[in-house]
Amino acid sequence: MRVLAALSGGVDSAVAAAKAVEAGHEVVGVHMALSSQPQECRLGSRGCCSVEDAADAARAAEIMGIPFYVWDLAEEFEQTVITDFVEQYAAGHTPNPCVRCNEFVKFRELAQRARALGFDAVCTGHYARIVEGPNGPQLHRGKDEAKDQSYVLAIMGPQELPRVIFPLGEAPSKAWVRSEAERMGLGVSNKPDSYDICFIPDGDTQGFLKSHLGSKPGEIIDTDGQVVGRHEGYWNFTVGQRRGLNLGNPAADGRPRYVVETRAETNQVIVGASELLSVDRITCSDIVWLANDDQGDVDEAATSAFGASIGERSLGEVDERVLTAQIRAHGTPSVVTSVQRFGEEEEKLELSLALPIRGVAAGQSMVLYRGTRVIAEATIERANRGEGSMAS
């Protein structure tokens, strides 16, 4: 099988490509250069797509003895990921750029080009599994729960499942992957993982947004409508934030206050008590179904028997009939007790959760799981508690 392997320059993608070579596939490596300033150096474990990453990818390909190419996708990355990131914050949302990168660049562009070049499949170093089910391939969580990346992969859609290989899906740990890199002599076994937002390598998200959106002074108000502070732009705040509010007046009860909502239309940031962050209903749109044979119905008997909380149980032990929702890449899933589908022009979902969860913001990705299998991905529009909306 002819396989196009994405080589980021890190240990995961290098080991994944090497595993594809060991499996007997005809492998070609490609590094996707996403930075408009590739000459910039990586700052420790912050950022990616640097000149060092491209060089590390080239060296790994040379050691494996496979052809290697660099694709300049900086313009596509700028348009579909960075621009979207800024626009979503300007709309008062909290986006996940890694989800968008996987949707538009790491899978759409990679898969389209792979097909055009006659490759049978693409290979990446993501921690997720493709499992052959009775109705075709399924996307499942990776065996290593600490590294599982199925959450950010759900956006790829069902059409790519038959044409993708995740050799690290069964990897028991990152330590095992590093030991495999050392065994294979790939030269990146001790390279630190990248983290945070790759196009903000210094970690200063507020500074990045200010450079793109400027300042827009406005009011910080409490849930009673009283002005308690000022801000320089609602996009600098996200639901659940406590630090950096600089409130002039303490709450009447002396308790700390948190951001519970940002309102782009009025340029206001709403703050309130901690309990207002807990929601048990989530409304989602832009739904991507990955399971044609499973439309997210709740098995009430299985859900009742399983209980309201994941607790200390391993995610691999979640009953395969139980539906759960996850709102962060490495967040604990929440048991879903009901799913309502509505909308004539655009399908939407409203999920009811067995237990309230905190800090849900519009713009976040929600991924539905049946046991370890990914069922769907959607974008959160709003989150509610019994008495009404707390995030929109």
Rank of each mutant, 00 (worst) to 15 (best):
residue 1 M to W: 07
residue 3 V to T: 11
residue 4 L to V: 05
residue 4 L to D: 03
residue 5 A to P: 09
residue 10 G to E: 00
residue 12 D to N: 05
residue 17 A to F: 00
residue 18 A to K: 01
residue 19 K to V: 03
residue 19 K to A: 15
residue 25 H to D: 12
residue 32 M to D: 01
residue 35 S to K: 06
residue 39 Q to W: 10
residue 45 S to R: 12
residue 45 S to P: 12
residue 48 C to H: 14
residue 48 C to G: 11
residue 51 V to W: 09
residue 56 D to Q: 09
residue 62 E to F: 00
residue 62 E to Y: 03
residue 70 V to S: 00
residue 71 W to S: 01
residue 74 A to N: 03
residue 83 T to N: 13
residue 84 D to V: 10
residue 88 Q to W: 04
residue 90 A to V: 02
residue 91 A to Q: 13
residue 96 N to W: 03
residue 98 C to R: 06
residue 98 C to M: 07
residue 107 F to W: 13
residue 107 F to L: 07
residue 108 R to A: 14
residue 116 A to I: 04
residue 117 L to N: 07
residue 122 V to W: 08
residue 124 T to Q: 02
residue 128 A to D: 04
residue 128 A to Y: 04
residue 131 V to Q: 08
residue 136 G to E: 02
residue 137 P to L: 09
residue 138 Q to Y: 05
residue 142 G to C: 03
residue 144 D to G: 06
residue 145 E to L: 12
residue 149 Q to K: 12
residue 149 Q to D: 07
residue 150 S to M: 02
residue 151 Y to R: 05
residue 152 V to K: 03
residue 153 L to P: 06
residue 153 L to D: 07
residue 155 I to E: 12
residue 173 S to T: 13
residue 174 K to R: 14
residue 174 K to L: 11
residue 175 A to S: 11
residue 175 A to R: 13
residue 176 W to V: 05
residue 185 G to M: 02
residue 187 G to F: 02
residue 189 S to N: 14
residue 191 K to E: 08
residue 196 D to W: 03
residue 199 F to N: 05
residue 200 I to K: 01
residue 201 P to H: 00
residue 201 P to F: 04
residue 203 G to Y: 06
residue 205 T to K: 14
residue 209 L to A: 08
residue 211 S to G: 09
residue 211 S to A: 14
residue 214 G to H: 08
residue 217 P to Q: 00
residue 219 E to W: 10
residue 223 T to E: 11
residue 226 Q to S: 13
residue 228 V to E: 10
residue 232 E to S: 15
residue 232 E to G: 08
residue 234 Y to E: 08
residue 238 T to L: 12
residue 238 T to Q: 13
residue 260 V to R: 08
residue 263 R to Q: 15
residue 264 A to E: 14
residue 265 E to P: 01
residue 266 T to N: 10
residue 267 N to D: 07
residue 268 Q to A: 07
residue 272 G to R: 00
residue 277 L to R: 13
residue 277 L to W: 06
residue 279 V to E: 04
residue 280 D to T: 06
residue 286 D to N: 12
residue 293 D to W: 04
residue 295 Q to R: 15
residue 298 V to R: 12
residue 298 V to G: 01
residue 312 E to R: 14
residue 318 V to A: 05
residue 322 V to Q: 08
residue 327 I to D: 03
residue 334 S to R: 12
residue 335 V to N: 11
residue 336 V to G: 06
residue 349 L to S: 11
residue 352 S to L: 03
residue 352 S to W: 10
residue 355 L to E: 15
residue 357 I to H: 01
residue 363 G to Y: 08
residue 365 S to E: 13
residue 365 S to M: 11
residue 373 R to E: 12
residue 376 A to M: 09
residue 376 A to D: 10
residue 380 I to S: 03
residue 381 E to R: 14
residue 388 G to I: 01
residue 389 S to T: 13
